[in-house]
Amino acid sequence: MIRLEKINKTYFGAQPLHVLKGIDLQVNEGEMVSIMGASGSGKSTMLNILGILDNYDSGNYYLNGKLVKDLSENEAADVRNRTIGFIFQSFNLIPFKTAMENVALPLYYQNVNRKKRNQIAMEYLERFGLKEWADHYPNELSGGQKQRVSMARALVTQPKVILADEPTGALDSKTSAEVMQILREVHETGITMVIVTHERGIALRTDKIIHLKDGIIENIEINNPDSIDFSKEIK
């Protein structure tokens, strides 16, 4: 599903910063992986490249079998809209839109008519137990509810890949566990998932943990989340 071949990325500032130094990575369809690393290890940059939010200098990035390189803004927007679902640490819900409208927004950019997209959005909200909150604005929702809305928004276009940037970073441990539970359930429907995190407790719930250090993959840890009893884990 995702294949990175010798990806290099340098930020040219006052001091050129070589962030990614030849990353090779394969994420298969239906896999749930996490990327771990200290700050500055390049994990956010990698996620940005995976999400086509940023470009890379050299190498090849194949998403769903297609080479993603030098896409125009429009092509990138289209791929993001149809293939990728984003979950952000700070939720990034639009404050003046209700939960339902936030979830429906990606469909607006697919030119789905309003009645249809609100209907689809409602289905997803219902799936995440937020039906009663559909008409509420983000500031009327708890952190966990907000993250569930943003997950519904990520999934509403039925993407192939979910990219999550510290999805539990702004949540307490109980809510984090709930969110991770939901992500696993989503993953079990066959969606490929890449989660960036610096919390080992989160990473342990994924199939593969990719350890990044100074722009290179240090090691890949194969993990079996089903063998771990998370009820005892203390973050």
Binding site: E73, N92, I94
Partner: peptide, 16 residues
């Protein structure tokens, strides 16, 4: 910035 960035992330094209 954030609203527009989010719109871009979830598929808004420049012309949108």
């Amino acid at each position: 910035t954030r609203e527009i960035g989010v719109r871009r992330a979830i598929g808004a094209k420049p012309k949108d």
